[in-house]
Write a protein that binds this DNA or RNA. Structure first.
Lengths: 229, 229
DNA sequence: GAGTGGTCTAGACCACTGT
DNA sequence: CAGTGGTCTAGACCACTCC
C-alpha cells in the first residue's frame, strides 16, 4: 500500500525533526510529485497521518505539523488556558457569542434545571500558538447568576464561579466523546466540515444537585490528551 | 458539496429507521449509482458519516449501521461487559494472547514499577452483538501476582483483583485519547489500518502508590461514550 | 465465480488564500 | 494573479468475501 509508505515517510521526517511543529508542509501537488503519485493517494496518506495526530489541516491553507499534545484533567480543571501556561504555549480567546436562551434539553438535563429555565451562554474560540484549536461553550443558569442577564460583555466565568460557588464543589462531572464538527464550528476553526473533534463536557453540580455550570469544549483531537487522576 | 448531500440523505434513512442497527448498507457501487456519482465521492460521504458514529466499516465486508453507543464510566468500572449486560447487548470475549514480559516503559511508568519488573499481559478481543469492537490489554505486575507466571490459561482478572486488592482502591486513574489502530489491532478488529480508535487507560494504584493493574481498552469510537461522575 | 471493497491513475474545474 | 486545496469524473486492477 503506497499510501502507508508515504504516511510513514512523512511521519519519519517529523520525528527526526526535519519538520518543526507549526510548520507548513509542502503543497499537495509538490508532495505528490515527490512520491510519484497522484494527489488522491497523497491525500489519503495525509488523512491517515492526521488521525494519528501528527499533522493537521487548515481549510484551504494547507497541512501543518502538530504541536505536542497538552495533557488536561477535565475532572479537576475548568481552565484550559492554565494548562497552556504550564506548557509555555501562547494562547488567546475570542468571544464568539453571548446570549440568554431557553435551556436546551441537553443543558437542562445536565444541570437539573426545571422546564423553561433560561441560561446565559458564552461561546469562545480558543487559539493556541496562533492556531484556532477549540470552541468552548459555557452555560450558566440565570436563576443562580441573575446579574448576567443584563450583561452583554465578555466575563471571566471561571473567576466568577470561584468566587461564588466553586469552593463547595468537590469535583466536576465529565463526559468525553468524539463527534464531528458542526457547520459553524468548522467555519470558526477553519477545518473541513465534519472533521472529528474531541468533545469534553464538564458540569459543576453542588451538593443540592443544583448545576451551576456546564462547559463544553470541542477541540481538535491532536491538541489535547485527557488524563483523569 | 455533493458528498454532504449524500451523507445527510443516508443519515436521514438511518434516523427514520429505514436502516436498522447492525444491518449492511447496499454496496458502494449500488449507492454510487443511486446518487448518480462515483465511488470516490460516495466513499467520502460514508467516511464522514462514519466519523459521526452513525455507520462503521468492516474491512472488505462493507458498511453497517451502528448501534447506539454504550455509556461507560471508566473511573468507576473496569468491566465493560457489565455495561453490555445493562444495555441487553450480547457480548463475548476471546483471549488473543497472554504472556509474561518485561514491563514496557508506558506500563512501568503508570504502575510505578522498578526497572526490570516483569508483568503478565493479557490481550482480549471484545465482541458485542457479533461485531468485533475493541481490544483490551491488561497488565499485572508479577511481583503482586506471583501465581500468574505459571498460568497459561485465561483468567478473570477483574474477579481476581476484586478478591485481592480492589477493596482498597478508592477509584481508578483514567487517561483518554484518540489514536489510530496499529497493524495488529486493525487485523483483529477487521478495520482498515490506521482507523481511529478511542483509547482508554485505567490504572488501579493503591495507597502505597503501588500499581496493581493497568487496563487499556482500544475501542471503535462509535461504540462507547465515556462519562465520568 | 460473481461481486465487493481497497487502492490507484490521470486528469478536470472551482473557490479561495496569499502576495 | 498564481498557486493552493476542495471536489469530482471515469475509469482500472487486485484481493478478498460470500455464495
Amino acid at each position: 500500500m503506497q499510501y502507508l509508505i508515504i504516511k510513514n515517510a512523512i511521519a519519519e521526517q517529523i520525528e527526526n525533526g526535519m519538520l518543526e511543529p507549526g510548520h507548513k508542509l509542502p503543497s499537495e501537488r509538490v508532495l505528490a510529485d515527490a512520491f510519484s503519485t497522484t494527489r488522491i493517494t497523497l491525500r489519503e496518506a495525509l488523512n491517515y497521518l492526521a488521525l494519528s495526530g501528527k499533522v493537521y489541516k487548515e481549510e484551504r491553507r494547507g497541512w501543518f505539523v502538530s504541536q505536542e499534545a497538552l495533557i488536561f484533567n477535565p475532572a479537576q480543571e475548568l481552565d484550559i488556558l492554565k494548562v497552556c501556561k504550564k506548557y509555555n504555549r501562547s494562547y488567546k480567546t475570542e468571544l464568539i457569542d453571548s446570549k440568554r436562551i431557553l435551556a436546551p434539553k441537553m443543558v437542562a438535563d445536565t444541570l437539573n434545571l426545571p422546564p423553561f429555565s433560561y441560561v446565559v451562554m458564552y461561546s469562545r474560540l480558543i487559539i493556541i500558538e496562533g492556531r484556532k484549536v477549540a470552541v468552548q461553550y459555557q452555560y450558566l443558569p440565570e436563576a443562580l447568576f441573575p446579574s448576567l442577564a443584563t450583561m452583554d460583555n465578555d466575563i471571566d466565568v471561571i473567576s466568577l464561579l470561584k468566587e461564588q460557588y466553586l469552593l463547595h464543589c468537590p469535583s466536576l462531572r465529565v463526559k468525553v466523546g468524539v463527534f464531528p464538527a458542526t457547520e459553524g464550528e468548522s467555519a470558526v476553526l477553519n477545518i473541513s466540515s465534519g472533521s472529528m473533534l474531541m468533545d469534553i463536557h464538564q458540569s459543576a453540580i453542588n451538593n443540592n444537585k443544583k448545576g451551576y455550570l456546564l462547559q463544553v469544549i470541542r477541540c481538535c483531537h491532536d491538541v489535547i490528551e485527557i488524563e483523569i487522576k
